[in-house]
Amino acid sequence: MKVRIKFSKNGPLKFIGHLDVMRYFQKAIRRSSIPIAYSEGFNPHQIMSFASPLSVGHTSQGEYMDIEVTSFLGEDEMRERLQGVMAEGIEILKVRLLPAGAGNAMASVAAASYRVTFRPGISLPDHWQEKLAAFYEQEEIPVVKKTKKGEKEINLKESIYDLHIDTNPCPAVCMLLNASSGGNIRPSFVLERFFATLKWELPPYALMVHRLELYRREEERLVPLIWEK
């Protein structure tokens, strides 16, 4: 049986990298005594997969992983057991038993939403908000993206599904971006391209990125990886 788990990652734990988050959950699951399934072979490991790695320094309220269990304890019981062994900063938000044949979390991811704020003390170019809106309004945003094979030109506009500015409590850029395995766009990439058009360079570590949700595609609609019943 496959179970999908949604969790958040906040505070100091944003400095734990993806591989260490995986190790953390392997140990947490042992502590929680959840009956996880193990792979066959000489070196059995827990059957566990993560939807989409989160960069070091980013926070999130929409992280997902799938685990395979040998018996299902119920969604609430599992959530409570796991929550009981968490370190401060990671919270188990939801647990959902997946229907048989559901695709795994990583393959399902189509998009991700982010809320990006600027580190205090950074002075941004004048009228950047209006200019960002205009940047997004363009029909086409040709950019050069570095890939494993080299560089290629893409139309960034096609990968931005939504972009708007929220000013409460402080200016934040909210974005819904392509996060599929072939076309993932990082929120910092969008803002770097934008500020480059203003001939202005973002200082290092200027952005505070918070992931809000991960989405999969269902009949052309984007829905969260754990859907409401």
Partner: peptide, 26 residues
């Protein structure tokens, strides 16, 4: 939430920032 002694931009530029944040299980 615990407040860290080091600023984010410092932790992001050093190797393995998790060395300095504490808050581990137990």
């Amino acid at each position: 939430m615990r407040k860290l002694a080091l600023r984010d931009d410092i932790l992001l530029q050093v190797e393995k920032p998790a060395r300095y944040i504490g808050g581990e299980v137990n």
